[in-house]
């Protein structure tokens, strides 16, 4: 269709119909994106879209009147298409609101949506006690290649099954975890690049499986003052080995720990 013809078509569409079509169109597009966009985010986006449309309609008095008149004007001489649109919108909008209310309150068997925290909060009293070895506290370029190489071996043996050999969260066991979170993709700039070394050490050694952090990550180092801890994989690494794995994660992804 030529632009002029498109402009004529747009001009011929009554304002409320146009507003409805824009909102519905954006909603459908958002719904079609794969992987699916969570409902909470679509709701957020649609809130902005509706706000934008309200602003558009109310920016001029003439537009506001045109919008309102569409719903109140009647007359036998009106084109049938116009009447059909008015009746259609007057029917569809209440039905949509009704559906949303019903959908929000209908019984569900799925677990409720949880607000997930990507990086669990840990107190300064914990992080402040973690001593970072001098060799890893130095600039990443100065890290001992031998330590990084040992880290790789440890990672491949213990971590790659979930986090993947390419550190992209695509390990062979990764498909077993989905809700609320898959194994982290360390290549993503939103993961280890955002974190400091003490936090990384804490996250690795405390894990999440028994710490209410909504993560299947086991703890990889048992604290020396808690020998009775029975979590899976405890004592599989000592503290030095954990630091080597951390060094490997940063070296292999090209990210640097946050200072």
């Amino acid at each position: 269709m030529k632009p002029a013809a498109l402009a004529r078509l747009c001009a011929a569409i009554p304002l409320p119909t146009g507003v409805f079509l824009v909102a519905a169109g954006i909603y459908v597009i958002l719904k079609l994106v794969r992987p699916v966009i969570p409902h909470s985010v679509i709701l957020l986006y649609m809130g902005f879209v509706v706000l934008g449309l309200v602003i558009h309609v109310t920016l001029r008095d003439e537009r506001m009147h045109r919008f309102a008149e569409f719903f109140v004007q009647t007359g036998a001489g009106q084109p049938r298409a116009l009447r059909a649109q008015r009746l259609g919108l007057l029917a569809v909008l209440p039905l949509l609101f009704g559906w949303w209310v019903y959908d929000a309150y209908r019984p569900r068997y799925a677990p409720p949506v949880e607000i997930f925290q990507r990086h669990p909060t840990v107190g300064e009293e914990v992080l402040g006690r973690i001593a970072v070895p001098d060799w890893i506290a130095a600039a990443p370029a100065q890290w001992d290649a031998g330590f990084v190489s040992e880290g790789k071996k440890l990672y491949d043996a213990n971590c790659a099954v979930c986090h993947g050999e390419k550190l992209d969260g695509q390990g062979v066991a990764a498909e077993g975890f989905r809700y609320p979170i898959r194994p982290a993709n360390f290549q993503d700039p939103g993961t280890i690049a955002q974190l400091t070394l003490p936090y990384m050490y804490w996250r690795l050694t405390v894990g999440g499986i028994q710490n209410q952090f909504n993560s299947a990550m086991p703890r990889w180092v048992a604290p020396p003052d808690n020998p009775d801890v029975s979590t899976l994989h405890s004592y599989d690494m000592n503290g030095d080995e954990a630091w080597k794995v951390i060094a490997y994660l940063y070296r292999a992804t090209g990210h640097e720990p946050r200072r």
């Binding site: 699916v36 969570p38 985010v41 949506v113 607000i115 925290q117 989905r178 979170i181 993709n185």
Partner: peptide, 25 residues
């Protein structure tokens, strides 16, 4: 819309991709 996009999204069991959303993340 970009400004308010969460990095980690509140998702149901069906919606969860388990990690960051490949587009919106």
């Amino acid at each position: 819309m970009v400004w308010a996009t969460p990095h980690t999204m509140a998702a149901s069991l069906e919606e969860s991709t388990g990690g960051f959303h490949p587009v919106l993340g």
